[in-house]
Design a binder for these strands. Structure first.
Lengths: 70, 70
DNA sequence: TCCAAATGTCAAATATATTTTACATTTGAA
DNA sequence: TTCAAATGTAAAATATATTTGACATTTGGA
């Protein structure tokens, strides 16, 4: 899985909530609050499905929310 | 995992290869040829890490390569 | 036409994303 | 200040992304 080059440094930009709680967003996206919490804490590497749904509900493109740390 | 609403309909736009083979792109991204093949065939839901690396090597934004089927 | 390279696919194994349950800490409004 | 709501986190279980190995089919150029 190319551990050396990229190092799984995917980051999520601060999910600023327009009234949404972490749990609300999780529910909208269809994951658990814990998963959303881990994503926000940048603890791992979600699937594109989850990212697209976050993107949709936050109305921001995936490329703006997630990137590779150079 | 919200089986009803979204149905895991992530699609990859045709990965047109500027001389790249499926295997070449797989190697660049750091996954196996089989994984790249499955992604192209829209058989599943890759991680954002893989998507960002595909995006990088194809020089197209993630949002252009992957979307949710309405 | 022929053949090597590229692609499609399958089954079993492995790695890891995601859930479940549970509890401790923080935060903000009454 | 207080208390409910929100957040942070952890361990174990489950679901699924990804690999490995292998083989069959397709494709494009010589």
């Amino acid at each position: 899985m190319e551990e050396i080059i990229i190092k799984n440094k995917v980051k999520i930009a601060r999910i600023e909530k327009g009234g949404l709680t972490q749990g609300d967003l999780a529910k909208l996206v269809g994951v658990t609050r814990q998963t959303m919490n881990l994503i926000e804490a940048q603890k791992y590497n979600p699937t594109i499905r989850v990212c697209l749904l976050i993107s949709k509900h936050l109305e921001k493109p995936v490329d703006e929310l997630f990137w590779i740390e150079e």
